[in-house]
Design a protein around this nucleic acid. Structure first.
Lengths: 301, 301
DNA sequence: TCATTTAACTGACTTTAGTCAGGTATCCAG
DNA sequence: CTGGATACCTGACTAAAGTCAGTTAAATGA
């Protein structure tokens, strides 16, 4: 069973990523070394901060500097201080010159050409099928590339998630969301051993979160489960929830609880299907309409 | 329309081939340079001829030799004369030593591990969806990687196709197929300007063929359209047929004909859907039950 | 304000990948 | 049985890719 699935993925990796990937590189490198072409491509018509390029391409800082000097020497790129006023004066921004934009457009055209060379031999119907299947693979691979990790709630990415969470529910609750009326959650409550905050990231960008408070002598309480709408419907919420439950279970808690608002219908559906059952209110949270509870299976090991 | 499709393929290329492909390489290279690891992998537990490795990996002959010497030096590989008696004494075969097999198994394990790392974060249902979509992408990409090219009918790959064609129809015709009873087709008839033989290849392996005879003062005649069963159902036959028609049309023929056997039901369906209509017998081919004709649109240009 | 960290950079270096021009033994067609 | 092709090999080389230690200037935190 598992081995069948693994074999299928390996076949795919072999034929698709190796072969198509190699061809893609070949198209990309037009007389210019691949690393330079890729860098030029990543800078793009809008420019990019050097640090962002380093992260996206996964390059050594020194190596990247040298590549930038080469492209500058060829008159394709200028590297200057960031323009945003009040920014960090150490940060530098790479931007394309007119010649650089021309070469970028050339790469863009080649990339189009390569994509079309894949579609061209197929009949119209098969083209549609291929594109549909590609979109499906991509969607599910994105789901599998999301990483869920504990993270201090004070981390800027955690903060961004919590802000997005508040904005989202404010938009969805019938009567809006006013943090002043809700029971506050303090950072210390979401730091071990009092609890934990989990951050979900996609290519190190925050795309979701969730937290659990381990109340002494009371059921653990799940809070702040949120998933960015760009990655909704991929099972990320369920993964976060499961990880939070496991966290509580391995520390000896046997019950978790949570409250939620009636507007959050998918969340409610998820809680039901994850084995939660509705209970009487266990708190007086202003924005809660439903309260749920789940018995945790004892932690293995 | 076209640009939507192209954009979708490009998105796929970016996320899938770049990201998954890069990770795959990383898993593959375990302390050893990627080229060596790939070569070791390709040799495999059963060994492989040096020429086959060169073709599969697309390496320079000298470079491959050097890589083999390195692996030999590390005690992972032995390169010796081919064992098949009566073979070409120049041909050499690379085989893994015990240590080589151990390292191969290590790579195999890593490859499994990587494949599983993609599937593991998904729920069972999404795993199935991903594997299904991957298989679909792979299938259609194979279709798009098939190349149809003119080829002399004396080429060994053309010969292999014609043998496979005879074997196939021998198996399918109710009363078998005896070439002696069929009208022979001579090589000269399938070489320009008398006609053409098209070979379909996938990674340079022959997977299909077709030919057209340009009879002076008579309709062109299509012969020997065959597709390997490994790539059937992907529209290869239709592509070959279309290319043959275009070949005849650009040389001034306005009509093509062909005959076929009643057992070849998919072929008959293809001819119908490609615009052929059934006509009275125009020859006395022993194995023919149906005769078809198509008016060719004038060649553009 | 002063030690520490950080972003970007420079210089010196190694490894990997790949190319190209021969060379040797074998095969094959005429 | 000879001349040319072929399979694999060696030597000499280059370019690309990447690593690492250390520098500078700005930011940060106590």
């Amino acid at each position: 069973m598992r081995s069948d699935l693994v074999a299928a993925v390996r076949r795919f990796n072999r034929t698709v990523t190796q072969r198509v990937g190699a061809l893609d590189d070949e198209y990309m490198a037009s007389g210019r070394p691949l690393a330079q072409a890729r860098l030029l491509w990543e800078i793009g018509p809008d420019g990019a901060e050097v640090a962002a390029l380093r992260a996206r391409l996964g390059l050594d800082s020194g190596y990247l500097s040298r590549l930038l000097r080469t492209l500058e020497g060829d008159g394709l790129v200028t590297v200057g201080p960031a323009e945003r006023t009040g920014g960090d004066a150490r940060v530098r921004v790479a931007a394309l010159t007119a010649a650089g934009r021309a070469e970028w457009a050339e790469l863009d055209g080649r990339s189009d050409e390569f994509a079309w060379s894949i579609l061209a031999p197929l009949t119209g119907q098969r083209r549609e099928q291929l594109v549909t299947a590609m979109a499906e693979v991509e969607r599910l691979l994105v789901a599998s590339m999301v990483v869920v990790r504990p993270c201090p709630p004070s981390d800027p990415r955690a903060r961004a998630c919590l802000r997005a969470y508040a904005r989202d529910i404010g938009r969805r609750f019938d009567d809006g969301f006013d943090p002043a009326l809700s029971k506050p959650v303090h950072d210390e409550e979401l730091v071990p051993p009092a609890g934990v905050f989990l951050l979900a990231t996609l290519n190190s960008e925050p795309v979701g979160c969730g937290a659990v408070k381990l109340h002494p002598d009371a059921p653990a309480e799940i809070k702040r489960v949120w998933v960015a709408d760009t990655v909704r419907g991929l099972g990320i919420g369920r993964r976060i929830l499961g990880d939070l439950e496991r966290y509580a279970a391995t520390r000896g808690w046997t019950t978790v609880r949570l409250d939620t608002n009636r507007s959050l219908t998918e969340a409610i559906a998820m809680y039901h299907s994850a084995g939660y059952r509705e209970i009487e209110p266990y708190n007086s949270e202003h924005f809660a309409h439903h309260w749920f509870e789940k018995q945790l299976p004892p932690a293995p090991g």
